[in-house]
Amino acid sequence: MAETTVATKSVKFIITRQDTPDSKPYTEEFEVPYRANMNVISGLMEIQRNPKKADGASTAPVCWDSNCLEEVCGACSMVINGKPRQACSALIDKLEQPIRLEPMSTFPVVRDLVINRERMFGALKRVKAWIPIDGTYDLGPGPRMAETKRQWAYELSKCMTCGVCLEACPNVNDRNSFIGPAAISQVRLFNAHPTGEMNKEERLDALMTDGGIEGCGNSQNCVRACPKGIPLTTSIAAINKDTTKHLFKKWLGM
């Protein structure tokens, strides 16, 4: 009798699926029962529990990647209704239905919504996005960072390597070797650090090689797309300034 009093609401999904890294993508429709405060991940969990398509036919459960479920790890990035974002912070109540889920195909697709973001970690290694302090003895405390600087540097440190800025960038594609906005902003972060600054030329040099900072075409989609509100275009322009200065200093032998 309860069924007659409670309106059965459901959530419709249209999901782009892909069985293997090399196979052709296809779409499948799903309809899952609605619950209050659902997000895209809980919708996907519902499909996992009952892997049936909207027409009732059985199918393999949809694969996705997720971890923290609070928009700090960056693992569950996918294209939701056309926009790259995190599935965990994409609330069903705020999405237009049917909800279209696609993998961020700028990256190699592993399966369904799972992508391989290895190029981003490779980029961080390339620009040496760390502070080298290892030694054979205790080096003691480093120089202090000014509070005013710490405040904006903290914003840059929120980057979770989620890949949304690369997905949004028209210059990150198969024909272009552009490193992407995230790594450039990390160079700014580590070059701002009083100890990291001691190796700033190495990081600038890395961005002044093929596929470095010159790949930026100023479409400024990255800063709009970034879920953490990182001022990526400011970072890029600031590093443009630093690389330009570094270029002339090197030419002049300074």
Binding site: N218, A238, T243
Partner: peptide, 8 residues
């Protein structure tokens, strides 16, 4: 922007 003149 590319030459780092306008930053913010």
């Amino acid at each position: 922007i590319s030459w780092g003149i306008t930053i913010g």
